[in-house]
């Protein structure tokens, strides 16, 4: 079963990290990723830029409405995701636990089973 592990955190708090702190965190998360890769279970991974760079389209009766910013103002923002092939929810939880241990900040990881997945052509 394919699982998406979605990272939520306060982006303003993450933005206070120094370059060194950010690099160190990414390196630790990279090690967790490598563990899954070694088992042939790691899918695409993405880190998103801040919500201030987001644009949102809302369906209306006419032309869609284009809004500067994320869909909703929330205290924690969607910052990135992992796709992993896990045998069970337990395995997905174990993976997310490794991620949360590697990440020094607050926030959380949401585990969502994937319905449709089109493999990437971007490599």
């Amino acid at each position: 079963m394919l699982y998406a592990v979605l990272c939520y955190n306060d982006e303003n708090a993450v933005a206070t990290w120094s370059k060194e702190e950010d690099d160190a965190c990414m390196a630790r998360l990279g090690q967790v990723e490598d563990g899954m890769k070694a088992k042939g279970k790691m899918g695409p991974v993405a880190r998103l830029l801040p919500t201030t760079s987001a644009t949102t389209l809302r369906k209306t009766s006419g032309e869609p409405l284009i809004i500067d910013g994320p869909f909703a103002e929330t205290k924690e923002q969607f910052l990135g995701f992992y796709l992993a092939d896990c045998d069970s929810l337990d395995e997905a939880i174990a993976f997310a636990k490794e991620l949360i241990k590697a990440n020094p900040s607050g926030g959380g990881y949401e585990i969502r089973p994937v319905g449709i997945f089109h493999p990437s052509e971007l490599g």
Partner: peptide, 9 residues
């Protein structure tokens, strides 16, 4: 450190 980051934010 998360407390420090939360306080600054």
């Amino acid at each position: 450190a998360w407390i420090a980051a939360a306080l600054i934010a």
